[in-house]
Nucleic acid binder design. Sequence first.
DNA 1: TGATCCGTTGCAAACTCTGCAACGATCGTT
DNA 2: AACGATCGTTGCAGAGTTTGCAACGGATCA
Lengths: 254, 254
Amino acid sequence: MSQTVDRALSILPLLAEGPADLGRVADRLGVHKSTALRLLRTLHEHGFVYRQADQRYRLGARLISLAQEAMENLDVREIAHPHLVRLNEQVGHTVHLAVHEEDEVLYIDKVESRYPVRMYSRIGKPVAITVAAVAKLLLADLPENERRAVAEQLDYPMYTARSTPNADGFLKELAKVREQGWATDLGGHEESINCVAAPIRGADGRVVAAMSVSAPNVVVTAEELLTLLPLVRRTADAISGEYSGRTPVKEVTA
Amino acid sequence: MSQTVDRALSILPLLAEGPADLGRVADRLGVHKSTALRLLRTLHEHGFVYRQADQRYRLGARLISLAQEAMENLDVREIAHPHLVRLNEQVGHTVHLAVHEEDEVLYIDKVESRYPVRMYSRIGKPVAITVAAVAKLLLADLPENERRAVAEQLDYPMYTARSTPNADGFLKELAKVREQGWATDLGGHEESINCVAAPIRGADGRVVAAMSVSAPNVVVTAEELLTLLPLVRRTADAISGEYSGRTPVKEVTA
DNA sequence: TGATCCGTTGCAAACTCTGCAACGATCGTT
DNA sequence: AACGATCGTTGCAGAGTTTGCAACGGATCA
């Protein structure tokens, strides 16, 4: 809606690909160098971009610290954290907490496995939305028309042979997940990694977050992991209860 | 330099304080509601702000995932990480990696202590710049005039009785740190927590990052922690060596 | 039911932003 | 060593975007 701001903000994802010089930024934006320069200057003043010694720009520290604050403001995270830690102490595996927001599902908390074999993931990282157990739970809770709309505009990368292949399969999986109230990812993202996940609900019953326990095949089989399901669900319910007690902040779905 | 972008970016730190409604944003910006609305809309389209069900705005998920990418692009971090993990395995305590950028020093990596008593800190969080051992190392490396300029514009909060009290004391400490090539924080931030830190240097000898080992008094005394200094320094040197091998990206200091 | 508060929209004036062209510095080449 | 090329930077005037206003509609509360 605001051309100038729109252009300035478009610079950031561009720089996320890696450092870029003025000419490159101008080209990618489709504007004159002088225009790009002024936008970059403004971003720089706010610390959103940083200028290296070679004159190239990259994303700045301010962005990182702001994002940090953004996460600390999420009240689900605050409430859930001690529960995640406790669950991790009981089962030993990696525990994740994720939320959904505008076509992205991302991890907002993580407690590392006690086992030496750890999975790669990071707080703040968008999850593989078509296969992750937490993503299934979060999307399954959407009203049907939205669910279909989302499903149809997604890509379905075949990370492994068991990845969700297309929108149809995804919608069927979501329907199943919606009904049973929990979800799994059995090697759909990485061949040897399995997850079980449960939803966290607000006072109105809507899913506000999802948590999962993940472990590689070499540590426990999928069957063994599934035996943890009741415990995971109980933990999620405990968080739901505590969260519902407070003034919940539901999210707009338009 | 660009008024519109400047205003739009000013909204973000404002929202970092917590969710705000349109009127509040407009007031804080000193602009008309309709102006604020249009800026917020643009930010929203890019996912930088999110609109809650109660119509209020808060920081959005895109900000978080962008910051994530920003950190993954830092090459020091990538090189250092395995070294940090190894050090953590040897000493058991929390290990941090920090960089300096435009008046902020922030943690860009962390390996958690194996002991049950853990210290509070988070990747992406700005560190207490006047007391943290890593901050001392990073600032000590600046040319003298810059060092003084920075020192004089800082605040000196007395977290504890041993916190650096003022610019004068800070500059003396920096001089000492600069000479000895390592730094400590003995209860200057939190009464019972001590740190030892060492610098990581680029090919040109300039400090590009700093790493530290932190532990609470209840686990090891300050004296015991100091015996780890040689190991910390050796680790830092190893990282420096590896980092210098690549094309280093020095940072502009203006 | 009426009043108030808040977000939203169209419009015209005003101001900001844009692209251009020219400059200077740096770097690599002949 | 000098030249050419590349890149970032600046002043300027026209163009286009942005701004504040005022009015509308919906929601909330008394």
